[in-house]
Amino acid sequence: MFDHTSQVDDRETWPAVWKGWRQKCPNCGSGPLMKGYLNVRRSCPVCKQELFHHRADDGPAYLTILIVGHIMAPLLHIVFVQFRPEPLILFTIFAIGCVALSLYLLPRLKGAMIGFQWARYMHGFAKPG
């Protein structure tokens, strides 16, 4: 049976995902992953790891919607049932909350997805040699 853990060039998934979440290069963990809000650098300025192969596409947006919906919908229900605020106040608070949470999560989830792809050798992040 093939033991993939004995290979020298195996990449650990969770550290790479965590580095991506922090918007750092999944290889070295110190170079910036993004230039701007959502634009991924072509390569890491520190370790020269190529990053342009990533295929995050719409995945981070779908995950953001999923997470924000699962957090805000129960909160909306709880606040409405417990406190019965005025509709305009309720809308304003939850609209701002949804936008703020979405803007916070989107680049981090994109970085995490790129870190995952890098760790699993997906979409051009090929094994060396």
Rank of each mutant, 00 (worst) to 15 (best):
Y104H: 12
H123V: 15
I78L: 14
L109N: 00
V81H: 05
K127P: 10
Y121M: 13
P15G: 11
P85T: 06
L103M: 15
R108K: 14
I114C: 01
R22P: 03
R84Y: 01
A73Q: 03
L33W: 01
P74R: 12
E12D: 11
L51Y: 05
L109V: 01
A126P: 04
I96A: 10
H70Q: 07
K110M: 03
A61M: 02
D9Q: 14
Q23L: 13
G20A: 12
G20Y: 05
R108H: 04
A61D: 07
R84M: 03
L101E: 08
I67W: 00
I78R: 15
R120K: 15
Q82S: 09
R22H: 05
M1L: 03
W18K: 15
C98K: 07
A73S: 03
Q7N: 06
A119K: 07
C25L: 05
N27G: 12
H53I: 06
L105M: 04
V68H: 01
A73D: 05
F83V: 02
S43F: 08
F116V: 09
V46G: 10
K48P: 12
R55M: 00
L51W: 02
L101D: 03
V79G: 14
K48D: 15
W21C: 05
P128M: 13
E86Y: 02
V40G: 08
C25N: 10
P87L: 13
I89T: 12
L33A: 05
H54E: 04
H77Q: 15
L109K: 04
D10A: 11
N39H: 11
G115Q: 10
P15Y: 03
W21E: 08
H77D: 14
D3C: 15
G129H: 08
C25V: 08
V8P: 03
R22L: 06
P85I: 06
L33C: 09
M72L: 05
P107L: 14
R42P: 06
C25S: 14
P74Y: 04
P15N: 13
I67K: 13
V40P: 03
T92P: 09
L88V: 01
R11A: 05
Q7I: 02
G69K: 07
P74N: 14
N27I: 02
V81F: 01
A112W: 08
R11Q: 06
